Simulated assay, not measured.
Amino acid sequence: MIELAILGFLAEQPLHGYELRTRIAQLAGHARPISDGSLYPAINRMEKAGLLERRREAGAAAAQRHTLELTPAGRAELQRRLRNPAELDITDGTRFNVLLAFLGRLGDRTAQAAVLRRRLDFLEAPASFFYAGERPQRADEQTDLFRRGMLTVARATSRAERAWLREALVELAT
């Protein structure tokens, strides 16, 4: 998720590390806090892989600042990840939102639709947080108030997302 967000935000414009961290944190939300201990090693890996480069600039004080910028290889990697997202990027809600935030950069409506279809297929498969044997349990089967609440909210969220996905697929087909 961090690497896709780095690629996506740097495709928009070069950024300083702090600005990049702030944007990723805002996108990921409180559920997945971004620490320097995860961001900067990812930046270093990506720099070594030739996906981004650092430029030194004079800072407001005496310290130099580093601006991060995508290389052509980084732009190609972003396109590859958007076109062929990992399974976890489809099934994990936060990771899917990161993917969705940059999917417009793909520019190929057919490929965009294929990604959305994968997410829709995932959401349409029967699932639950709780099971009776192999069978997913529904909210109305829960006697526990809080589990019932989890399932009720998840069902409403899934319905809304599926409706949007269907609308988006129609729009992409026109």
Rank of each mutant, 00 (worst) to 15 (best):
D92T: 04
E57G: 11
D89R: 07
A76H: 02
A58M: 12
F96P: 03
R75C: 01
S35W: 14
R81F: 04
R80N: 04
L27H: 07
A42T: 15
I34P: 06
E19T: 08
E69K: 15
N84Y: 10
V115Q: 10
Q112E: 01
L68R: 12
R119M: 05
G59T: 13
L99Q: 01
A49M: 09
A86V: 09
H66F: 11
L99P: 02
Q26N: 03
R56P: 00
G37S: 14
R65G: 03
N84I: 03
N44I: 04
R95F: 14
R75N: 07
S35K: 15
N44K: 08
M46P: 02
R118I: 06
T71N: 11
A49P: 04
L78M: 10
Y18L: 12
R117S: 03
N84P: 00
L20M: 11
Q26E: 06
A114N: 12
G17V: 08
T110N: 00
R32F: 08
N84S: 10
E19G: 12
A73H: 10
L103R: 12
G74D: 03
G37E: 10
S35D: 15
F122K: 05
E69L: 13
G17Q: 12
E69N: 13
A113F: 09
A25L: 08
G59S: 12
D89G: 04
S35Q: 15
A49H: 09
P33T: 07
F102V: 02
T91N: 06
R118M: 13
P33N: 07
R95I: 07
G17P: 05
R23S: 02
N97K: 14
L52H: 04
P41Q: 11
F96A: 07
L106H: 01
A58I: 11
R65L: 13
L68C: 11
G50K: 10
S35V: 11
D121Q: 14
G104W: 10
G50T: 08
T22R: 14
Q112K: 01
A86I: 05
Y40F: 15
L88R: 10
A25G: 15
K48W: 04
A111G: 00
E19I: 04
R32K: 11
L116M: 13
G29P: 05
V115P: 09
I43M: 11
Q64G: 02
P33D: 03
F96K: 10
G93F: 08
M46I: 03
A28N: 06
I24P: 05
A76M: 02
